[in-house]
Structure formats: structure tokens, C-alpha cells
Amino acid sequence: MQPSVNVVSLVSVGRHPQSDRSRRADQDARAVELGLKLAGKNLTLVHAGDPENPVLRQYAGMGLDAFTVLRQKSYSDVLPIIGNFLTENNAHVVLMGIRAESGESSGMLPYLLAEKLGWPLLSRVADILHVENGKADVLLALPRGQRRAVTVSLPFIATVDNAAKDARQSAYGPGIRASITVLDAEQTADNMAASWAISPAKPRAKRMKVVKAKNAADRFKAATAKPVGGGGNVLKQGTPAEKAQAIFDLLLEEKVIR
């Protein structure tokens, strides 16, 4: 890894899904893990929010001596100050989770940063293979366990998928001993979010199977009869070679054979 590449991981305060306690956010911790793989101890760890929050020590406990906090009140807009911080510090690779585990968790921050800075953005990164000559080879995580290789030039922003390597365990002592640099930044109030009503999530009703039959005979049939497929193609005649060809054509058409 060349020392000239400046890797920044943006972290937020997570929320344990069952106990509701604050914790290090899962995807953000993976972003820190990926940053540590790329830059080692030179990784810049940045959080915008309350510097007193003990959860930040859990990120530092992954093997960092220092981290930076941009002081913000809760529910203020962090986009301007993070954008300024990244340009001032000449970041090359910016890593973060896909969605925060608290607040709106819209997942828009990386997109807004990329738009503001004019940098390319990659979402759902599984791994960054190497960064060389101002270019990075990145593996994207696709649904169904697939991977796509993409090359992108520096600087860029990447969000880290759950398919990336698990975050290492956090060590308590080194986390407590890590030094914090607190930068006071101007506050931008999020006026639009102030008008929203926020309530605990209501469980969503499961969709019922509704049978729209006009008469009792059809309803009875829908309740009891086996579902029949839409009458597929049945090949009885022909040699095995012809039959295999028919299957092969279907597989090619569905693009499962490349």
C-alpha cells in the first residue's frame, strides 16, 4: 500500500436491533475494517456528532491511535462539514456504511457527498483489491452472492456491503487510550426533518391471499385444487441430444450460462 493514498472511514453510532443499545454500526465497522486493510494505522477515522459518545471508542479499539470528531448537535445536517473536511484533508478513498442505524437512515449521504465533490461513487462494495497508479480495483456485491469487478479512478466514495469482511473485535483498553481531535464546525439545522412525526415502527400487516371468485364453485376450487403451472412445453419425442439442446437454449436465453 502506498502511503500517498489517504483513506477516510466515516462512522456513525449504531443501534443494536434487539436491545436498542448504541453500538458500533455493523456496516460502518466493516468500512473501518476495509480501511484498515488498505491503509493500516494511517486510516483517518471521522465521526460527525457528539465527541463524548463512548461508542466511538469501540471503533478506535479496532487498532487506531487517534480519530477525529466534527462536533455537531443531533439532527443537524452533516453534509457541508464532512464535504469540507474531505477536501481539506485531501482524501482519496472514502468508505462508509450503506445506511446509518439511527436517524432517517436514508443512505443519501454518500450520494450527496459524491454530487457535491464531483467524485465517482460505488455502492455496495464487497472488497477493494488494490489501489495503484491512481486507480482502484473494486469488487461489488450483487444480489444472489454474485460479484462484479469495477475499476475506478481516485478519488472516490464507496459504501460497504454486508458481504464485506467482518469487522474485527474491538479492544477496550486501546480504544479508551485513543486520542480524539475535536473540530468545532458550524451547525446547519435540518429544517425539513423538524416537521416530521417520528414514532416507533408499527408491524406491517402480512398480505393475505385474496381469491376474487364470483361463485362458490370457483372459490372452492381455489381453496382445494393444486396450483397448475401455465402449461409448459413437454418434450417426449427425439434423441437425448435434441432434448439437451432444448434445455441448453432455455439456459442461454435466461442467461444463467455465460
Binding site: 412445453n233 413437454v234 432434448k243 439437451a244 432455455l250
Partner: peptide
């Protein structure tokens, strides 16, 4: 029942068809 459900069903001995399919791919 599988043939009734299938979009394409081939009535043949599986060993011969799989051999041909492997060769084709």
C-alpha cells in the same frame, strides 16, 4: 407433478440427457 409444474419438461433418461448437456456447455 414436477412435469406439470415445469416450463420445459424433458421425458428421457437423465443420464443420457445430462451427458449431452455437459457436452453442449
Amino acid at each position: 407433478d414436477m412435469v406439470k409444474r415445469a416450463d420445459l419438461a424433458v421425458i428421457a433418461d437423465s443420464e443420457a440427457v445430462l451427458a449431452e448437456l455437459t457436452k453442449l456447455v
